[in-house]
């Protein structure tokens, strides 16, 4: 039977042996292609509660799957794989694997909050997206974000000394996130600034203050202009 919804077949569910012989029949390559089923065989009743412990996701259980969030989503307009409605459903039914599968796009939420404004049940989907990004990080599915590294360094200094040293926070932040103290962009910026410093312009300013030169080939233009303006005034006011 023809497969009408190929979009439902994720690549990882396609099984194919390069060489395979069954009962003496060579079925190598696409002749032995099998698709593993996508049947949901159980719900994880606790996952929703786990996600709800993150700030912003408290209302995820209110969702009734109307799809307003996805329809209004800025990112969905860019990429139809970005589907907040689906992820909220996965949270509610405990389909953890679906969240992990989309870890590389969930964080792309731009927090425009259109979903949160439109949601008829006040689920606050933007908060759910943030919660999911944090959960993925906590579970080690994503590397620690720079902002989290910064927060940890900041907090540790407070714990240790009751205050922070700005320079030390920055220094350690750069070190822990593998960034050079003088990042590449700053170095390029400095070099270009030096290269294009307007030295000549400064010198012209100084010279012109001293000698106040006339515009080239000005000649009697000034006198003519003055006379014209006077005549116009007389013509108008008598």
């Amino acid at each position: 039977m023809a497969i009408h919804e190929k979009s439902l077949i994720e690549p990882e569910r396609l099984l194919r042996h390069e060489t395979l012989v069954v009962d003496g029949v060579d079925v190598s390559g696409h002749w032995n292609t099998m698709i593993t089923p996508r049947t949901i065989t159980d719900y994880d009743d606790d996952f929703e509660a786990v996600i709800q412990r993150y700030p912003g996701a408290e209302n995820v259980h209110r969702c009734w799957q109307c799809g307003s969030c996805t329809n209004s989503c800025t990112m969905y307009a860019q990429n139809v794989q970005f589907n907040p409605r689906y992820w909220i459903y996965a949270v509610r039914t405990g389909l953890k694997e679906e969240i992990i599968k989309d870890k590389d796009i969930i964080w792309q939420c731009v927090s425009c909050n259109k979903c949160t404004s439109i949601c008829p049940k006040d689920v606050r989907p933007e908060g759910v997206m943030k919660a999911l990004a944090h959960w993925l990080e906590d579970e080690g599915h994503m590397p620690k974000s720079p902002s989290r590294v910064f927060d940890e360094e900041f907090t540790e200094q407070i714990y240790a000394r009751g205050r922070i040293e700005d320079s030390l926070v920055l220094l350690n932040f750069f070190r822990k996130t593998g960034q050079p103290l003088v990042p590449q962009w700053l170095r390029v910026f400095g070099v270009r600034l030096m290269q294009h410093l307007p030295v000549g312009l400064g010198m012209r300013f100084a010279r012109n203050v001293l000698i106040a030169p006339r515009t080239r080939s000005w000649g009697r233009t000034g006198e003519v202009l003055r006379q014209y303006v006077r005549e116009q005034k007389e013509a108008t006011h008598g």
Partner: peptide, 12 residues
């Protein structure tokens, strides 16, 4: 079939 996620379900 879970209509909203287009997936078969077999749930205990």
């Amino acid at each position: 079939e879970d209509t909203l996620v287009k997936r078969p379900i077999v749930i205990p």
